[in-house]
Simulated scan of single mutants.
Amino acid sequence: MRVFLLASILSVLAGCGGLRIDTSHTSQGQDSRVQFVILHYTSSDLPRSLATLTHGEVSSHYLISAKPPTIYRLVDENRRAWHAGESEWRGRTWLNASSIGIELISPGYSETADGQRLWYPYPDEQIDALILLLKDIVRRHGVPPGNIIGHSDIAPLRKVDPGPLFPWKRLADAGLIVWPDAREVIRWQTRFARGGLPDVAWFQQQLEQQGYRVPRHGELDEATRRVIAAFQMKYRPSRFDGEPDAETAGLLAVLNGDAPADVPLAEDPGQGVSM
């Protein structure tokens, strides 16, 4: 009886203003609109970032300052923010409609006179605040680990943020993203170094399995190099030159659990490897 009365009251309340909506039935076939969380850096300081993200043509759901860290909510999570642009991950395109965007206050990088990029690290306190926010978002929306990604992952041909100094491993240690086991990576890296690298088509297939949009023509063109570099920037930031090598192959093999069967397996990595 109480359930019937509650449903009737809700129907009447929903009908205020002449529109009657019965809310007594709820479908089981649904989930959160939020399928992805995309991380960015702003390339500017806090005042300029706030101005750009609140009065310009781009926006994000959250902005996190550096020191002291403050989390600003600029767009309600049930609304679309304009932060991803042309993008793709795991076959889903134009991710603004299905993601939460988080901007981190950071200059990103500066360039030297000879064109070298000098990257700026993220303060620990800022990453602490980000992890707390991510845990809350994951709890409420059920975002899987593989869908917390960087702008460079969803648009590798045009974006490099959050950059090679973003501490993805800290997110992994917090249980937010998957991270490859280091011993297994060395084992597969040695296997590829001794037995030879897979062909470019294998790298392309493995990167696509991770979620990247990548050509599948078997050629090491500029687009494929950019995607490889984006992957390396996350999992092997010490060198992200876009070259397919044994360590990159090892990382992919461990993350995807897939590697060519005709490459001889290395000995236990505890014996030491010289690469």
Rank of each mutant, 00 (worst) to 15 (best):
R226A: 11
P198I: 05
Q204L: 07
R194T: 13
A201G: 09
F192C: 05
E219V: 12
I186G: 00
A193G: 06
R216E: 12
A193V: 08
L197F: 06
G195V: 11
A193P: 01
E219T: 10
Q189A: 11
L207S: 01
R187C: 09
R191E: 11
W202R: 07
R187D: 07
Q209V: 08
D199V: 11
A193H: 11
F203G: 00
Q204A: 05
G211V: 02
A193L: 13
A223G: 04
E208L: 06
I228V: 15
Q209D: 13
F192A: 03
Q189K: 14
V227I: 10
A223C: 03
G196V: 08
R225I: 06
W188F: 15
P215F: 08
A223N: 09
Q205T: 13
I186V: 14
G211H: 01
Q209K: 15
G195L: 10
E208I: 02
P198Q: 08
T190D: 14
R216P: 02
V200F: 02
Q209A: 13
R191D: 11
D199A: 13
E219L: 09
A201E: 09
E222T: 11
Q210V: 10
P215I: 03
V214A: 02
Q204Y: 04
D199E: 15
A229C: 09
L207I: 07
A223H: 03
V227C: 07
L197D: 04
Q189I: 06
A230H: 03
H217V: 10
R194G: 05
A201F: 07
Q205D: 15
L207E: 00
V214Y: 00
R213G: 11
I186F: 10
P215A: 05
G218D: 04
L197P: 01
Y212D: 01
E222Q: 14
E208M: 10
R226Y: 05
D221I: 13
R225A: 14
R187Y: 12
R213A: 12
G195P: 08
F192Q: 02
V200N: 01
R187K: 15
A193Q: 14
L207V: 07
Q210G: 11
V214D: 00
H217A: 12
Y212P: 00
A223T: 07
L220P: 03
V200L: 07
I228N: 00
E222M: 08
W202G: 02
I186N: 01
W202K: 07
Y212C: 02
R216C: 07
R213S: 10
D221K: 12
D221Q: 12
T224I: 06
R194A: 12
Q206A: 15
Q206I: 03
Q189D: 12
R225T: 11
V214M: 01
R191W: 11
A229G: 03
E208G: 10
P215R: 04
R187T: 09
Q206G: 07
R216N: 12
W202H: 06
L207Q: 00
R213D: 09
G218L: 03
V227A: 09
L207K: 00
G218A: 09
Q205H: 14
L220Q: 03
V227E: 01
Y212A: 04
I228A: 03
R216S: 15
F203H: 03
A229I: 01
R213T: 09
I186L: 15
P198E: 04
Q210H: 12
L197T: 06
P198T: 08
I228T: 02
E222A: 15
Q206D: 06
W202A: 04
A229E: 02
G218T: 05
E219D: 10
A229T: 04
Q189E: 15
